Amino acid sequence: MWYVYLLRCADDTLYAGCTNDHHRRLQQHNAGQGAKYTRSRRPVTLVYLEQAEDHSQALRREAALKRLSRKEKLALIASASFPLFST
């Protein structure tokens, strides 16, 4: 199973990514081993998570999320009904 996610960084920016293990990936981001973008913006918090059928679909959805405006991303986060995961 693949996932698309949004992180809220310490500087209040939003980062979109995809992974097949969201718990591990969040730990990587917070350890400075994730994306270059998040390394200097730690800690990060998972604020949105969406399942994808496969890697290809996850990549397409990640690209679509990255094209959204900040306002649209915040609306998506506000409408999400997933439990925040504790790590």
Rank of each mutant, 00 (worst) to 15 (best):
M1V: 07
W2L: 09
Y3A: 06
Y5D: 03
Y5S: 05
Y5K: 11
L6N: 00
L6Q: 05
R8T: 02
R8I: 03
C9T: 05
A10L: 13
A10K: 08
D11H: 13
D11M: 15
D11Y: 06
D12C: 12
D12I: 10
T13S: 15
T13E: 15
L14H: 03
Y15G: 01
Y15P: 01
A16P: 12
A16H: 05
A16E: 15
G17W: 15
G17C: 14
T19S: 15
T19W: 15
T19N: 03
T19Q: 11
N20H: 15
D21F: 10
D21L: 06
H22V: 14
H22W: 14
H23Q: 13
H23K: 14
H23E: 14
R24A: 14
R24V: 06
R25E: 07
L26T: 00
L26M: 14
Q27K: 15
Q27V: 14
H29G: 01
N30D: 01
A31C: 10
G32S: 01
G32D: 00
Q33T: 10
G34Q: 01
G34S: 00
G34C: 05
K36D: 04
K36C: 06
K36L: 08
Y37E: 09
Y37L: 15
Y37D: 07
T38C: 13
T38V: 08
R39A: 10
S40W: 08
S40G: 10
S40I: 07
R41H: 15
R42F: 03
R42A: 05
R42Y: 03
P43R: 07
P43W: 05
V44Y: 06
V44G: 05
V44P: 02
L46S: 02
V47K: 09
V47M: 08
Y48K: 04
L49N: 02
E50N: 11
E50K: 09
E50T: 01
E50D: 04
E50C: 11
A52K: 02
E53I: 10
D54W: 06
D54N: 11
H55M: 10
H55W: 08
S56G: 12
S56F: 11
Q57T: 10
Q57V: 09
Q57N: 06
A58V: 04
A58K: 02
L59F: 04
L59M: 08
L59Y: 06
L59E: 09
R60L: 12
R60T: 06
E62G: 04
E62D: 05
A63E: 09
A63Q: 09
A64G: 01
L65C: 02
L65D: 00
R67A: 08
R67S: 03
R67Q: 10
L68M: 09
L68P: 00
L68H: 02
S69Y: 02
S69I: 00
K71Q: 14
K71L: 13
K71Y: 11
E72K: 09
E72W: 04
K73E: 04
K73D: 01
K73S: 13
L74A: 00
L74W: 02
L74D: 01
A75M: 03
L76G: 00
L76E: 00
I77M: 15
I77C: 03
I77P: 01
I77N: 05
S79F: 09
S79T: 01
A80Q: 14
A80H: 12
A80R: 10
F82S: 13
P83I: 07
L84S: 08
L84T: 04
L84D: 02
F85T: 04
F85I: 06
S86C: 04
S86F: 08
T87C: 06
T87I: 07
